[in-house]
Nucleic acid binder design. Structure first.
Lengths: 194, 194
DNA sequence: GGATGCGGAGCGAACGTTCATTCCGGAGGT
DNA sequence: ACCTCCGGAATGAACGTTCGCTCCGCATCC
């Protein structure tokens, strides 16, 4: 379940699962294939994970954490809210562009029964306790932004990224630095107090 | 494959597939369950569809068509581009809110190997021939909008909707008429020429 | 040599798909 | 008007395959 980062084999399982599931989907990747790609026996996977669902949730948790870390590392407190917003949007986009497997996995996860279930419980548990939430959410409470519910602002700021990333990965519309900037500008226009 | 709308049993299979897959995912819904819910024998499904993949693509095509129809029926040629934009965003949002099964299905479809494959072939075949594409795409070519590649405008206009719909369906942020209007306004700010 | 971590053959269950059979409505003969 | 026959639609038990998962023997270390 946890795979307390001591085992390299466990990491290999994580990586293999990520790659295979991102490309073939949950039901398209049997445990046997994961084991083979990770270079371990099937049985060994069950040493670290209770079952396949547990593995999938684990892979999600890791991908999610990596994404958060990419965001936190960029956050510069000194600059204006607009600059902070641009920096966050840009670095999130680039992170997902550089880690397409993570992106594909997360998208599949959140749009499957796994994700909707998880999203709910996360939302309701995070409200009272966890204060180190996404840098985005705390930024969006600033004065520069429209007076709308946070999830709506979140949607206006994030939604376009997801969409464009999909287009980028499927080759329909490749993103470059210039386009990412245009995107960030559009998102900014959408959320800023006019 | 086609199920030329003469058979009510075929429609029952469509409906059952839509409901079950939307809630349980592709790999969570066996053919036997679909057959039972549709009130037909398992074998009968294979009279209309080559195999399970064919069924899934068929359900997608139908849901996609319904969405297009909802959009086309609203398009009012006389009004300003801004009003047209608002009308389209609003009616698309409402259509998906009123048909959550379609929304969940489509989201799963587009984020699975089924969808990415389909999206690609659709994009490359539609460029030369099909001129009755989404009313959105033709609208976005208008003068009121930023001079950006169409997929990017598309993302700015649509992305937030998808995100908010997800929140709505999972109960995190319920949408009402007012919020939908705010959303449309945000999307408009994102894509309009400043 | 005992304890521990690992591998992969093997298990039962469940899947997608098939096919021998049944069912049903209407055409045709009497 | 009735019975007979027939073709295709519908069926679901059965099939082969594949899945997730377990179990047990082997390797490796202390």
């Amino acid at each position: 379940m946890d795979c307390e980062e001591l085992s390299e084999k466990c990491l290999a399982v994580y990586q293999a699962s990520l790659e295979l599931i991102a490309e073939q989907g949950f039901h398209g990747t049997p445990m046997s294939q994961i084991a083979k790609k990770a270079g371990v026996g099937v049985g060994s996977i069950y040493r670290y994970f209770k079952d396949k669902d547990d593995l999938i949730h684990g892979v999600h948790a890791q991908a999610d954490r990596k994404m958060m870390e990419a965001l936190v590392s960029v956050h510069i407190a000194g600059s204006s809210e607009k600059d902070q917003f641009y920096a966050l949007v840009t670095s999130l986009t680039k992170h997902l562009m550089e880690n397409p497997l993570e992106f594909r996995f997360l998208e599949q996860y959140y749009n499957s029964p796994y994700g909707t279930e998880k999203k709910r419980e996360k939302f309701f548990e995070e409200m009272p306790s966890d204060e180190k939430t996404s840098p985005f959410l705390s930024l969006l409470k600033g004065d520069s932004f429209k007076d709308l519910p946070l999830p709506v602002l979140h949607a206006l700021a994030f939604g376009p990224l997801i969409f464009s990333l999909r287009d980028h990965l499927s080759g329909i519309q490749l993103l470059d630095d210039n386009l990412i900037d245009n995107l960030a500008e559009g998102c900014w226009d959408a959320v800023r107090k006019s």
